[in-house]
């Protein structure tokens, strides 16, 4: 039987190659386009960035520090958050506005992600794909932005353009200066299993409880770069982000029977962990391998909450 398997494997490889060859005939990357030089695509070298792409003598990068307070509403699968952002303009330019990313808005029915979703292939249309389609259609998603104010609590003029928000500054932010502002928001958490979204909740029917995996969950300052200016393209659901460096102070409030895992340094261990868990955490700090703080085993799933050495969780009961 083993011998038979080899020719089969070879055959399927050939078919794959043939499929690739047909694909290569059309579209991008053929003919002259395949041999186009990269120079025209790369940013023009300057003081901030050399032609190799490495930082130049005048390299700069913006900075955004966050203080975030967020509460999980387990009954409504909703997040209620408030954040204060200190934005430092380290660029040599004065800025008259800031752009903020609102990734959750991709779940709104009028988002570019929803509008430009293509029809699935109905010839091989799994049940889950239908479930995904319908769950996104019925979901009331997106950030409900409740407040955008400056450090003194004065409202800031802002404009939400689908997954991006532009905040107009009361006066230009000169190079080297900082601007403090606050955003309050709420948003519904999507069914992560049905929608196959990056973040979301999973419901366990037997226990009637939820597990939450939260991603792209707070409004965050878009990157302002020497090579692209404001990186403010619409979020289409795929792709990664360029973000500014910064410090985060995070307060997460969850129901008492929840455990939070996150990257960072836990500040209030005594308040949120049991004596046994605290002991384990202490061991974990110097352990060579991953160490289990909580041995709670989720039914219907084999996932356990673990904490990797050097990465500790934040939570507040």
């Amino acid at each position: 039987m083993k011998r038979l398997a080899i020719p089969c494997l070879l055959l399927s490889t050939c078919l794959l190659l043939a499929a690739n060859a047909t694909q290569a005939k059309q579209g991008e990357g053929t003919g002259a386009e395949a041999f186009a030089q990269l120079e025209q695509l790369l940013p023009t070298p300057g003081d901030a960035r050399t032609a190799s792409g490495a930082p130049g003598p005048e390299y700069w990068q913006q900075r955004a520090d966050y203080v975030i307070r967020v509460e999980l509403d387990d009954a409504k699968q909703r997040l209620i958050g408030s954040e204060t952002i200190t934005y430092q303009n380290l660029s040599p330019h004065a800025l008259t506005y800031l752009w903020v990313q609102l990734e959750q808005n991709r779940f709104r029915p009028d988002s570019d992600d929803m509008l430009t979703a293509r029809a699935p292939n109905f010839e091989e249309f799994p049940y889950r794909a239908l479930e995904q389609l319908l769950s996104r259609r019925d979901f009331e998603g997106g950030f409900d932005i409740q407040k955008v104010v400056d450090g003194d609590g004065e409202p800031l003029s802002h404009r939400i353009v689908k997954t991006m928000m532009r905040i107009d500054l009361p006066e230009p932010l000169a190079s080297g200066e900082s601007f403090v502002f606050q955003i309050d928001w709420e948003n519904n958490i999507i069914d992560g299993i049905a929608s196959r979204a990056r973040g979301g909740y999973e419901y366990f029917e037997e226990d009637d409880n939820y597990i939450y995996e939260i991603a792209q969950w707070y409004p965050r300052v878009a990157a302002y770069t020497d090579y692209d200016g404001w990186v403010n393209k619409q979020f289409l659901g795929r792709g990664e982000f360029t973000l500014e460096l910064g410090d985060y102070r995070l307060e997460i409030t969850v129901p008492g029977d929840h455990i939070v895992t996150a990257t960072g340094v836990l500040q209030n261990t005594d308040e949120v962990l049991t004596a046994t868990q605290r002991e384990r955490l202490e061991v974990a700090e110097t352990a060579a391998k991953s160490w289990r703080i909580s041995t709670t085993v989720m039914t219907n799933s084999t996932s356990r909450l673990t904490i990797t050495p050097g990465i500790r969780s934040f939570s507040r009961g």
Binding site: D112, L115, T116, R118, P120, L236
Partner: peptide, 20 residues
Amino acid sequence: LTIPAEIWRYNNEKVSKLFV
């Protein structure tokens, strides 16, 4: 409704859109 031009980003010759 207006579907943004990004709908052509995977295939700029032919595209199918589902309406529920």
